[in-house]
Nucleic acid binder design. Structure first.
Lengths: 191, 191
DNA sequence: CGATACATGTAACCGGTTACATGATTTT
DNA sequence: AAAATCATGTAACCGGTTACATGTATCG
C-alpha cells in the first residue's frame, strides 16, 4: 500500500467552495458583502464562513481576478455599499464550472459542491441542463452504491462493530441522496 | 435580522476535527505520523488532510500540548520512526471530549464530529456510554426533524423549485441518520 | 541498478478565524 | 442619550496545501 504522493489535489478544484457560493449569489442579483453575509447566516447555506474577515477579502480577490466588478452605491443606503456584479468573464467562468460533468470523484469527495452547483444551475444553464446534471448524479450514485456495499460486506469480518456501523451510516447517506436525485428529476420534469 | 457579531465560534470546538481523529487513532494503538497518514488514506476516514505537511506538525503540536508523547523507535523499521502514545492528560482529555452530551448544535453543524466520536467511543468509554450517546443523537435528531419540516413547508412559497429541493436533500440526510441511529442502538444492544 | 515502498520532514503561500475599529442611522 | 442596526473593513495568528528535500531498504 503506497502512501507517497497521496494527499494532494484537495484544496481548490478550480473554484473553492466558498467562492462558488459567493459567485452564485452575486449571479442571482448584484450584492454587497453584507448581503452575502446575510444569506450565509440566515439560510445556513451549507455552512460557510460568514465572518467579515472571510467575505470582504474574498470579494476583493474575485474582483482582482476579473470575475466580479464592484461599484460603490450611495443612494438610499445608510453607508456607501460596495455592490458587486458578475463580469462577462465571471459569467462565463461560472457557467463553465456549473456545466462540468459529474464525476465519481465529486460524488465521493465533493457532494456539498454538487448541491451548490445544483442550486445555482437552473437560472444560468436552463432546465434541460439541470435535469441532465441530476441524471448524471443519479447514475454516478447508483454505480457507486454497489461498490460501497461490496466493500462493507467484504470488511464485515475486520473492524469493530462501531466502525462498521459508521460506514453503514455513510452508505445510508448515499442511498438517500440517490433516491432524492430520482425524485428531483420527476419533480422538475412534470412540475 | 441582526448580522453583527455572528459568524464567530466556528473554528475549533475544544478540539479541531482532524486533531480528534489523530487522538482517537493514537488511542487505539501507538502510531507514527506515517501510520496515521495510512489510515487517513486507506480508510477514507471522513476526508482528512493526510498530507505530511498537515499531520507531522499536528502530532508535534499535540505533543507540545501534552496530550501525546512521542518516542523514537529504531528496532525492526527501515528508518527511525517517531511513535506517539496518549499521555495520561491526553487520555483524560479525549475521554472528556468523547463523553460530552450531544447538543442540538452538534446535530446541525458538526455531524461529522459526532460520527468520529462514535467510532472512537466504544473502547474508551464502554458500551453503555456508546448506547447512551446514540440515544441522545436519535432524540436530538427526532426533535430537529419536525422543525426542519416546518421550515420547509413554511418556505414552500418563496424560493425556487431547486432551492427547495436542495433543502429537501438535507432533510432526507437527517432522516436517514435518525433511522440509522435507531438501528445502531438495536444492533449494539442485542449483538 | 533502478523502481518502489518506507518514513519524516521543511518552506512558501494562501486564506480563514478571531477580535477589534469605525462610523452613520434608526429605534427606544 | 443610549442601544441596536446597517455596513465595511483591518491585523495577528494559526494552520492547511503544495511542493520539494532527504534518506533507507527491499524487490526484480
Amino acid at each position: 500500500m503506497n502512501c507517497d504522493d497521496q494527499g494532494r489535489a484537495r484544496g481548490h478544484a478550480v473554484l473553492v467552495l466558498a467562492l462558488l457560493a459567493v459567485l452564485g449569489l452575486v449571479s442571482q442579483q448584484p450584492r454587497s458583502g453584507y448581503d452575502v453575509r446575510k444569506v450565509f447566516i440566515e439560510t445556513a447555506l451549507a455552512h460557510f464562513s460568514a465572518s467579515p474577515g472571510a467575505i470582504y477579502p474574498a470579494l476583493r480577490r474575485l474582483e482582482r481576478a476579473g470575475l466580479l466588478s464592484g461599484e460603490v452605491e450611495r443612494q438610499g443606503t445608510l453607508r456607501p455599499r460596495r455592490v458587486y456584479r458578475l463580469t462577462a468573464q465571471g459569467d462565463r467562468g461560472l457557467k463553465r464550472h456549473l456545466g462540468r460533468p459529474v464525476a465519481r470523484d465529486d460524488i465521493v469527495w465533493h457532494m456539498d459542491e454538487l448541491m451548490l452547483r445544483f442550486v445555482f444551475m437552473d437560472p444560468l444553464l436552463g432546465r434541460a441542463a439541470t435535469l441532465e446534471f441530476l441524471e448524471e448524479m443519479a447514475q454516478e450514485l447508483e454505480a457507486y452504491l454497489p461498490e460501497l456495499e461490496a466493500q462493507l460486506a467484504q470488511q464485515e469480518q475486520v473492524g469493530t462493530a462501531c466502525s462498521r456501523l459508521a460506514v453503514q451510516q455513510g452508505l445510508e447517506g448515499y442511498r438517500a441522496t440517490a433516491r432524492w436525485a430520482r425524485r428531483a428529476i420527476k419533480a422538475l420534469s412534470s412540475g
